[in-house]
C-alpha cells in the first residue's frame, strides 16, 4: 500500500480521536464514553487486513499516543492486540451478521474503555459507563461501518 494511503487512514483515525475529545466531555455526563478513533482503526484492519499489518498498527498507535493520550504505549498495545485478533479471525468475520460484528467491535471498544479507566483513572471507573457505552457503541458501529465503507470505496477504489 502506498504511503499516501497510510496517511489517509491515519488521518481518519486521528479525526475519530479528535471527535472523541470534542464529544466525550458532553457525553460522559450521560454515562457514555465514545471511542470513534478506536472503532475507525478496527474498521480499517477489518476491511484491509492484508494491508494493515503489525508494524502499521504499532506506528498508528504511537502517533495517536503522542497526540491524544496521557501515556505512551496504551494505544500501541490495544491497536496491536486488536489487529492480531482481527487478523486471526478475519475469515470468520466475513460470515458474521451485522449484529454479530457490532457485538464484537462494541465489546472490544468497551474493553478498551475499561482498561483506559483501570490503568489511567481508576477513581473514575464505573460499570454503568461501560454498560451504557457498550449499548450505544452497538448502534454506532453500524453507522461507522457504512460511513467508512463508503469513504473507503471512494478513496481506495483500487484496494
Amino acid at each position: 500500500m502506498k504511503f499516501s494511503n497510510h496517511l489517509i487512514i491515519l488521518f481518519t483515525i486521528m479525526l475519530g480521536f479528535a471527535l472523541d475529545d470534542f464529544m466525550n466531555p458532553v457525553s460522559i455526563k450521560l454515562f457514555v464514553e465514545l471511542n470513534f478513533g478506536f472503532l475507525i482503526f478496527a474498521y480499517w484492519v477489518f476491511a484491509l487486513p492484508e494491508k494493515i499489518q503489525s508494524s502499521a498498527a504499532l506506528i498508528y498507535g504511537l502517533i495517536i499516543d503522542l497526540l491524544f493520550s496521557n501515556v505512551i504505549g496504551f494505544n500501541m498495545l490495544f491497536f496491536i492486540t486488536t489487529s492480531y485478533i482481527i487478523h486471526l479471525y478475519v475469515f470468520r468475520f466475513r460470515i458474521f451478521s451485522y449484529f454479530q460484528l457490532s457485538v464484537f467491535f462494541s465489546g472490544s471498544s468497551t474493553i478498551y474503555t475499561a482498561c483506559k479507566y483501570l490503568l489511567l483513572s481508576p477513581y473514575n471507573y464505573s460499570y454503568i459507563v461501560l454498560m451504557v457505552s457498550f449499548l450505544i457503541t452497538l448502534v454506532l458501529w453500524v453507522g461507522i461501518y457504512f460511513v467508512m465503507r463508503a469513504f473507503r470505496r471512494s478513496f481506495f477504489s483500487n484496494l
Binding site: S54, A57, G61, I72, F74, M76, I80
Partner: peptide
C-alpha cells in the same frame, strides 16, 4: 514483539 514493546513503554 509489538505487544512486548507496547507493554514496556506503557
Amino acid at each position: 514483539f509489538g505487544f512486548i514493546l507496547s507493554v514496556f513503554l506503557l
